[in-house]
Design a protein around this nucleic acid. Structure first.
Length: 591
RNA sequence: GCUCUCGUAGCUCAGUGGAUAGAGCACUUGCUUGCGGAGCAAGGGGUCGCGCGUUCGAGUCGCGCCGAGAGCGCCA
């Protein structure tokens, strides 16, 4: 938000370097001024002092020289436009903002931009984010939650940063697991209908049963292959069963997506990939990239390390077709990757898939690179995230049926938040309470998944998931409610723009500072693909608002402070709502 | 065996090569004639896994070790 001022000072610093015959820095790094309680910008001169010493070949005391340079520079700058003062402190150049000028600029910009405050200009690039990827005929559990929430938030953040976004889902509706389920269904549950509630739980239970039964049944594998073959031969009975059971899962997913407030622009399905994948595999064999070992009773594979002439194992081997000629998911991923580029002319194709598939994606992307798609492969990115475990490092397993069902979690969280509302705000009408309870419950579930580094394993336990205190979404929503409450009591429109003429309190400046950080946080979160920059800022902004709330009266304040503070409250409310919206979290006005 | 990830307060986690490493939870204490106390303020608690290196400067970068987890030819 202060790019202009920054650019101006940078120009001055470069001019200073030239005048003093110093090496000109390529980049000038800015940070906040710590400990001062004042609001401004800071940069250090150590690097410059060290560079100068290295170039001259003479031994220099870097700390001393940095202090000297900072002082000279401060003297040269004087008091530039918009800044109250400039100071040299221990080798740092500190520029202190003329707070009223900047404060008013921040507030004006937030209120003028509204829900789009913080959004960047269009970058003219189209990015696909693929996420969720649930498997039909399996349970939808808390392990899938991280993926869905992370992907959705990331898509929002990239969109806000200025990219055109295509939200894609790739439904796992094909492969051996599907036929394993059908095999078990035909043997033990033929004709059964799924229950009304928790469809995916029922599907998952049958899947776990199928896994158990298969282990005990030596003929099972053969029977499953037979079903697979019948599907291949377009056997009506199997096709009908396949479509019918698949639809049960899809209905269950749609229910969950609507509950979680998640939407997609494009659905891909594994079963659609089979044919194009097989055609593509034939081409790879012709090109000599894939090796056909089927005549010897083997598979079709891409021996990546061998093709690349690597001595150590790195990419290993990607298996594309089984010995019985059916295709594997590696083959489908080859086809899908190209279809995406063909359909949307993407500038970037992102896969939000858990870290255990890192090698798989390395293999897929490298194979396509070798097959002549090097340009496209520069634009793909597997964004890995760690799994969600249960307490005691218990792995969530569809195969063994050890899952915490997502719908159960949503119900629990909603019930819990309704109970808290009853306690804290007993006067609230039941219908309003239920709506708000859901907003808070969902937020509490989503926030911790987004506030954690993607590469860290998350542990799900009920106590933490349902803890609504402290660094959690309800805290942020509460700050938003307080802001709404003040504006509601004020009643009429917030007063028109005004530069503050009262002495800004430290907590006012801190709050404005946090609000002003949103545009940069969005750009950084998008560049690094990290939602936690937004969760952190949302929390810090809420904290700053609560501090302000305690220290600065608004409605009781004297004019002109009252008018400015009303506008500040409206800005804080907007900034909080915008952060939460990026995270896929709603901002209630009462709770 | 090879590859990848993680290791910061009792616990869960932040921390852009820069000034005095921060939050939340838990624990102790205080704050409501005041805009919503789901809040605020204060307190204790740290060999940033260990070592070497790069650098003016390392929790942050590199290498090595230790510990934990994951992946590695016909599941997805």
């Amino acid at each position: 938000m202060f790019e202009q001022e920054r650019a101006l000072i940078e120009k001055e610093i470069r001019a200073f370097c030239q005048a003093e015959s110093l090496p000109t820095p390529a980049e000038i790094h800015w940070s906040q001024i710590p400990f001062s309680g004042e609001w401004g910008l800071s940069t250090s001169l150590f690097q410059l002092a060290a560079d100068e010493g290295r170039l001259s070949g003479k031994k220099t005391n870097v700390a001393q020289r940095a202090t000297e340079l900072a002082e000279k520079l401060a003297a040269r700058l004087g008091a530039p436009e918009g800044f109250a003062r400039v100071a040299a402190v221990k080798g740092y150049l500190n520029l202190y903002f003329a707070a009223p000028v900047f404060a008013s600029r921040v507030v004006e910009e937030v209120l003028a931009s509204g829900p789009r405050y913080g959004w960047g200009a269009s970058k003219g690039q189209r990015v696909m984010v693929e996420y969720s990827q649930p498997n039909t005929l399996k349970a939808f559990h808390v392990g899938h939650l991280r993926n869905m929430i992370l992907g959705a938030a990331l898509a929002n953040i990239l969109e806000a940063a200025g990219y055109e976004i295509v939200r894609a889902n790739y439904i796992g509706d094909f492969g051996k697991d599907v036929f394993k389920w059908l095999w078990n269904y035909l043997k033990r549950h033929n004709g059964e209908q799924p229950p009304m509630q928790d469809v995916t739980r029922w599907m998952g239970d049958l899947y776990a049963e199928a896994s158990r039964e298969l282990e005990a049944d030596p003929k099972g594998e053969g029977e499953i292959r037979e079903l697979f073959a019948r599907w291949d031969a377009e056997d009506d009975e199997i096709r009908e069963l396949y479509w019918r059971t698949r639809q049960w899962s899809l209905d269950g997913f749609n229910e969950i997506y609507s509950q979680m407030d998640t939407r997609f622009d494009r659905f891909y399905y594994e079963h659609e990939m089979e044919k194009p994948a097989k055609v593509f595999v034939e081409q790879l064999i012709e090109k000599g990239i894939a090796t056909d070992e089927r005549p010897q009773g083997g598979t079709v594979v891409v021996k990546l390390d061998e093709l690349l002439g690597l001595k150590e194992e790195k990419y290993r081997v990607l298996v594309l077709l089984r010995s019985d000629n059916t295709s594997l998911y590696g083959a489908w991923d080859l086809a899908l990757a190209l279809i995406k580029f063909k359909e949307y002319h993407l500038d970037k194709s992102i896969y939000v898939v858990d870290v255990r598939q890192s090698l798989h994606f390395k293999q897929v992307f490298k194979t396509l690179e070798l097959a002549g798609y090097a340009e496209e492969m520069k634009k793909v990115l597997h964004l890995p995230y760690e799994v969600v475990n249960l307490p005691g490092n218990v792995i969530i397993s569809s195969r063994e049926g050890v899952v915490v069902l997502l719908e159960e979690l949503i119900r629990e969280a909603t019930a819990r938040s309704a109970a808290i509302i009853n306690e804290k705000n007993p006067g609230l009408a039941a219908s309003v309470r239920d709506t708000v309870a859901k907003q808070i419950g969902l937020a509490a579930i989503k926030y911790p998944m987004l506030a954690r580094e993607n590469t860290k394993i998350a542990t799900f336990d009920w106590e933490t998931a349902l803890d609504f205190n402290g660094q959690a979404a309800p805290y942020i929503q509460y700050a938003h409610v307080r802001a709404s409450s003040i504006l509601g009591r004020h009643g009429s429109q917030v007063p028109p723009s005004a530069v503050p003429t009262h002495d800004l309190a430290p907590s006012e400046i801190e709050l404005i500072d946090r609000i002003s950080q949103l545009p940069e946080a969005i750009q950084r979160a998008a560049a690094e693909y990290k939602t936690l920059h937004i969760t952190n800022l949302a929390y810090e902004t809420a904290k700053a608002f609560n501090d302000f709330y305690n220290q600065c009266p608004v409605l009781q304040a004297e004019q002109p402070a009252r008018d400015f503070r009303l506008r500040l409250v409206a800005s804080a409310k907007q900034a909080l709502a915008n952060c939460l919206a990026l995270l896929g979290i709603q901002s209630p006005d009462i709770m």
